[in-house]
């Protein structure tokens, strides 16, 4: 099939298959999957200037399907998601400004690349250690998922910060938390997204679980809800610059819709600690892709 906007010929079934695979992962782990979809799109022939914008368009559609599925299972905290978006949008702008500054200084690739790799290795290492420990406790028959998160003292302290206005998040089982904590976390993950050029799902999901104290399944669904809005916003800005081939996104999304449904449904059968343990592989893949980019000078 010839995609006339990007002026490229690609087998639509290949695009739908990429969408399907990334869709399963996104629905299961609550991530946008841009760090894997982007390179795969580039390898399948999508021109580089269309990769990011088209990926955001596809991510928007995929997150609608996955978030809708999670919502039907009661896994989306809409209030939490919307509040994080308020912080995330200026955060992305700040991240983009830091990028502009680094471009002027001329050390952007090395600074962003090394920051990215370090953050990903830390996230991966911690979720692996904690997930494995929690899975052992599940297998030993301990009760209550939240009891198995070793950062209870951290999120109890975070929830205990008395910085008005205080809000409650009943869906996430949080009785009282400062509004500024939620907006601040949205802002910080937004800065990372803008700085590292990723959706930020694989940073936000662990932050919601370990620092805010949101149950794993709700963190996944809420993260997808947030991605749906922020990716839609990002897609719109890229489309205005002529960087979106919506036909490619629509074709990829046909596969992703089914994959996201399967991925989201699978979370019903897997306990939170096991999801966190499996999740630990994702940031490592992201780090390896970035390492490859730094070493080889590849554009994606």
């Amino acid at each position: 099939m010839h995609f006339t906007i990007a002026d490229v010929t690609i087998n639509p079934l290949l695009l739908a298959s990429i969408g399907f695979l990334v869709g399963i992962m996104g629905g299961f782990f609550g991530v946008g999957g841009g760090f894997i979809a982007g390179p795969l799109m580039f390898l399948s022939g999508v021109p580089m200037n269309f990769v990011i914008g088209t990926d955001l368009a596809y991510m928007t559609g995929k997150s609608i399907v996955a978030a809708n599925r999670h919502r039907s299972m009661g896994h989306v905290d809409v209030k939490l998601g919307l509040l994080m978006v308020i912080g995330a949008i200026p955060g992305v702008e700040v991240g983009a400004r830091i990028i502009e500054y680094l471009e002027r200084v001329g050390s952007i690739d090395i600074v962003v690349g090394i920051t990215y790799i370090l953050i990903m290795i830390c996230v991966s290492g911690y979720t692996f250690w904690e997930g494995r420990r929690a899975v052992r406790q599940v297998d030993a028959g301990s009760s209550g998922e939240q009891d198995m998160i070793p950062t209870r003292s951290i999120f109890s302290r975070v929830q205990g910060l008395k910085l008005a206005p205080m809000i409650s998040l009943p869906v996430s089982k949080i009785e009282s938390i400062s509004l500024w904590v939620i907006i601040g976390i949205g802002f910080l993950t937004g800065v990372l997204s803008g700085l590292l050029g990723v959706g930020g799902g694989f940073v936000r999901m662990p932050v919601l679980v370990y620092i805010v104290g949101v149950p794993t399944h709700i963190a996944i669904g809420t993260d997808l809800f947030e991605i749906m809005i922020s990716a839609g916003f990002g897609m719109l800005t890229h489309a205005l610059k002529g960087n979106v081939d919506i036909m490619i996104a629509l074709v990829m999304h046909t596969g992703a819709a089914l994959g996201a449904q399967f991925g989201a449904s699978l979370t019903r059968y897997v306990e939170g600690p096991r999801i966190r343990l499996m999740f630990s592989i994702l940031p490592l893949i992201g780090a390896l892709i970035m390492l490859y980019r730094l070493v080889s000078g590849a554009a994606f």
Partner: peptide, 11 residues
């Protein structure tokens, strides 16, 4: 239009 198309297809 592109945003509307992907949202409608998503739904």
């Amino acid at each position: 239009v592109a945003l509307i198309l992907i949202v409608v297809q998503g739904l």
